[in-house]
């Protein structure tokens, strides 16, 4: 087996963040070197606590964790208006308090810098929450930009939104940070709503997850309670979208994700499209040089099989 790809995961755990952590740990192509936390699906205290509990459940409490920004760069965190991620951010799943997993006493960006500096290979930075930590990292440690293999994010959308009519939540909740990341000149992969909404798990597949995935499968099943209520019961969608696993799977298995180069910008100018990602596929309309790769769709059945296999691997 060839050397694993080093990854730092920046999360706002979060239901689908828990799945991302699971996928990162189970992958035989990825090596999760650190997890950093940010405000987002719930407040920073909650996202950090959830992250630690998930790592402990998955049997990897030794993975270094550091807490980052509690607020977006400009303005302050405010709780998201509906219970997409349940009361505790884990969709209804209950996890015991941590016995061993503990956050380090350093800022998130310092942990990122340490991992990048000490790595002999280029490191992927994967952001599946608001991009506050990653933006601060890129500016506080601009000399390390060239040691990154790239930045892969769950966020944005070419033509739709969820937090607003035009903007996706991770970008919207710190649009200034997102704009800084888009401009940083580091290879960027944007896994936006067009792709991640297709990365859903059906109720039947969720049952299979519980049946075959041991204690991790049971947790994952419980975790999806709130998602399934919102996506399936209320909205009539065929399943629950596991957005945050997609950028990791793009890195590990690019052959499973169809993607297109694009020129993209974050709209920072206010108005209806504030916080929207303005995407020009192939730079065709603007004539601008492409600065990112936009994920178009993922092989859904394969993705769900990976999730179930990850639960089995870590839970049995």
């Amino acid at each position: 087996m060839s050397e694993r790809i080093p990854v730092i995961l920046d999360v706002d755990t979060g239901v689908d963040d828990a799945f991302a952590i699971m996928l990162a740990l189970a992958s035989d192509r990825l090596e999760l070197r650190a997890v950093t936390t940010v405000h987002g699906n719930t407040d920073l205290e909650g996202t950090t606590d959830n992250t630690l509990r998930v790592l402990e459940l998955l049997g990897r409490p030794e993975i270094p964790v550091a807490a980052g920004a509690a607020h977006p760069l400009i303005g302050f965190y405010s709780p998201i208006p509906f219970a997409m991620h349940g009361e505790n951010g884990l969709g209804g799943a209950k996890l015991p308090e941590c016995k061993t997993a503990k956050a380090l006493d350093i800022p998130a960006v310092e942990l990122m810098a340490k991992v990048v500096r000490e790595s002999s290979q280029p490191v992927w930075l994967v952001g599946v929450g608001p991009l506050t930590n990653i933006a601060v990292f890129l500016h506080c440690y601009s000399e390390l930009r060239e040691k990154l293999a790239g930045i892969a994010i769950m966020g944005g959308a070419a033509y739709s939104g969820n937090a607003s009519i035009a903007a996706e939540a991770n970008i919207y909740h710190d649009l200034h940070a997102a704009a800084m990341v888009f401009k940083a000149g580091v290879p960027l992969v944007m896994c936006g709503l067009e792709c991640t909404m297709g990365a859903y798990i059906t109720p039947a597949e969720r049952e299979k997850l519980a049946r075959t995935g041991g204690r991790v499968g049971s947790f994952a099943y419980d975790c999806l309670e709130s998602y399934q209520r919102v996506y399936v019961d209320d909205a009539g969608f065929p399943g629950s979208a596991i957005h945050d696993g997609v950028p990791l799977m793009y890195i590990a298995h690019p052959e499973r994700v169809k993607a297109t180069p694009a020129f993209g910008e974050v709209d920072v100018w206010g108005g209806v499209t504030m916080g929207a990602t303005n995407i020009d596929y192939n730079g065709k309309v603007s004539g601008r040089e492409c600065n990112m790769t936009v994920a178009d769709c993922i092989d859904r059945e394969w993705y769900v099989a990976e999730i179930i296999a990850a639960a089995q691997k870590l839970g049995n």
Partner: peptide
């Protein structure tokens, strides 16, 4: 104010 902004961004 770039330096101060980054200090406040890095150290919560």
């Amino acid at each position: 104010l770039t330096n101060l902004a980054l200090a406040l961004g890095k150290y919560s």
